[in-house]
């Protein structure tokens, strides 16, 4: 080859390299994608996974999420909405019944703090809508719903179909569907033999495998300032993290913040806590647990007691006065990164 040709080839290669210089080039083994599924952001970060297999997994997961939403979405024209409004009398589909039974199981495990039967309360507070507006509910209606003690226990199985016993019972799986989606994703990865991927669905994160020589690392958002970070945490393979916070869907009324997280015991949309974060070590249904286990701590007025009741240790809570209450085992796992003096950290 002539020196001139060599130079030309080299120059062409240089141009190609410059054009390829992008995020995937600087981090060559990672493949990231983001989607919007029914108003919730779904993020994937694959490590050393063939692109076509990663694409197949994402496509299958999104198809399943769309199907779930088309059944369980609480304010679109779905089976659940019709059942909630008493337009249809029963639910007979086996898969739907199975999911409702899982929700019922977690209602029991959380002593009713995760209550998938309080759709009527969430609607009364005006949170069954895409755009939230300030709406103080009708106290009499809230009282009526609370007095009827809505619970999935008030569903009877009759000839293979679920029927309501309580007229005010409305199913809303909003408190577990993000976590449930993470478990669907986990099944999909196992099916396609995908080893390493981090999945974030609306803030709930499941770590499948790990990137080379390190764990997946996540940051936890500051509940007072969504542009700041509170802490960092390494997720061992198979673990998950979830947060319930008052800063995602809310409205302000007379200087108080009312959030879409409604306390099932008193029907209130106000809580003294601003967030509760749980870490779930590798186990079955790690995704659903990362979603529902934060609820009891978010609503709790006695964290020590709730910790004992739930027999669960890996959590911390932030309150409206910038206190953070954290267990010993959780403190071992996280690293605070908030500005010095911004929070007062105390043990539980």
């Amino acid at each position: 080859m002539l020196p001139r040709q060599l130079f030309k080839t080299f120059f062409n290669l240089l141009i190609i390299c410059l054009l390829l210089l992008n995020s995937s080039c600087t981090k060559p083994n990672f493949y990231e994608k983001k989607f919007l599924v029914y108003g919730t952001i779904l993020e994937f970060k694959f490590f050393e996974t063939p692109k076509n297999i990663a694409d197949e997994a994402m496509e299958n997961i999104i198809a399943q999420l769309n199907e779930l939403n088309s059944i369980f979405h609480p304010w679109q024209n779905t089976v659940i909405k019709k059942f909630n409004n008493n337009q249809i009398a029963n639910i007979c589909d086996d898969r739907q019944i199975q999911i409702i039974y899982r929700a019922s199981h977690y209602e029991k495990v959380t002593n009713g703090f995760f209550n998938p039967a309080i759709g009527a309360l969430i609607e009364a507070w005006g949170f069954h809508t895409d755009e939230i507006v300030e709406k103080t509910p009708d106290d009499a209606l809230i009282d009526k719903i609370i007095t009827s003690r809505p619970s999935l226990k008030q569903l009877n199985l009759n000839k293979g179909c679920l029927e309501k016993v309580n007229h005010f019972l409305q199913i809303d799986l909003g408190g577990m569907i993000k976590g449930y989606a993470l478990d669907l994703a986990k099944d999909e990865y196992q099916k396609l033999n995908i080893k390493n991927v981090l999945t974030n669905f609306g803030g709930n994160i499941y770590a499948h495998g790990q990137p080379e020589n390190r764990f997946w690392e996540v940051a936890i958002q500051d509940p007072y300032d969504q542009t700041q970070l509170l802490a960092k945490l390494k997720l061992p393979p198979g673990s998950a993290i979830g947060t319930s916070g008052n800063y995602e869907k809310y409205f302000m009324h007379n200087g108080k913040r009312y959030s879409h997280l409604i306390n099932p015991t008193n029907g209130s949309a106000f809580s003294n806590q601003s967030s509760a974060t749980v870490f779930i070590s590798p186990q079955d249904e790690v995704g659903v647990k990362s979603d529902v286990f934060s609820k009891p701590f978010y609503f709790s007025s006695d964290l020590k007691q709730t910790q004992l009741d739930m027999n669960f240790n890996n959590f911390f809570v932030t309150d409206l006065n910038r206190n953070i209450y954290i267990t010993e085992s959780m403190l071992e796992k996280i690293e605070w990164i908030f500005e010095e003096g911004k929070y007062f950290v105390q043990g539980i």
């Binding site: 993020e43 974030n200 940051a219 936890i220 958002q221 700041q228 970070l229």
Partner: peptide
């Protein structure tokens, strides 16, 4: 971007 290095954000 948040300057701190991490893979994803929990919220």
């Amino acid at each position: 971007q948040n300057t701190d290095e991490h893979d994803s954000t929990n919220y």
